[in-house]
């Protein structure tokens, strides 16, 4: 069971800066999340619906027609909810929900050499991913804009997580070897 992504509070945060059109919110959210969460427009709108229903945002119909002309605005209770959330400590440790863990767990007592192969290929993937993340980081015009900084911090988080995964693979490798001998 996947924990809910903080889409709700992300949208509240974006609207706290200024009211926005619905179509704007998708692009803004992608920037905020570094593009790592593949959210579709549907998820955005379904979340907005729920926020409207809870009275955390209001909807102004603008000029013209269609969904694109709707401007979302934060209500005082929405602001209160956002402040409360921002002030909260992180709720739970990061969940271990990667597929690799499951596959490795299954292979350990079935086919150890397959487990080693998995570790190797996975390691290669992580190295390549780190290289890609590093390239993205290098591509940023450092320290120029707040948006770039925000994105760099996210890239850092991603890099460190991948590094942790790599180290975990190394540990797995080491321990499996010891058991096998």
């Amino acid at each position: 069971m996947r924990p809910p992504l903080p889409v709700k509070h992300g949208l509240l945060g974006l609207l706290a800066r200024r009211p926005r059109y619905g179509y704007e919110l998708k692009a803004e959210f992608d920037l905020l999340s570094g593009g790592f969460w593949d959210l579709n427009v549907g998820q955005i709108y379904s979340t907005l619906e729920r926020l409207l229903k809870d009275g955390l945002v209001t909807l102004d119909e603008g000029d013209g027609a269609g969904e694109g002309r709707k401007i979302y605005r934060l209500t005082p209770s929405g602001q209160a909810e956002l402040d409360l959330w921002l002030a909260q400590p992180p709720l739970k440790p990061r969940p271990l929900r990667d597929e690799v863990y499951v596959r490795l767990g299954l292979l350990v007592d079935r086919d150890v050499s397959a487990a080693f192969d998995l570790i190797e290929t996975q390691r290669r993937v992580y190295h390549l991913q780190m290289a890609e993340l590093t390239r993205q980081k290098l591509a940023l015009a450092r320290g120029q804009r707040v948006a770039d900084l925000r994105r760099e911090l996210l890239l850092d988080a991603a890099l460190l997580h991948v590094e942790a995964d790599l180290k975990w693979l190394d540990t797995c490798d080491e321990k499996l070897r010891r058991v096998r001998i």
Binding site: Y126, H127, M130, A131, T134
Partner: peptide, 27 residues
């Protein structure tokens, strides 16, 4: 590994031998 990610090639040594020679460019 974070430092190695700056390279175009990441060569991993194990016990004095090349364990892996990985090109990281444009992947």
């Amino acid at each position: 590994a974070k430092a190695a990610a700056y390279g175009d090639r990441v060569i991993t040594l194990r016990d004095g031998r090349v364990h892996e020679d990985l090109a990281t460019r444009s992947v």
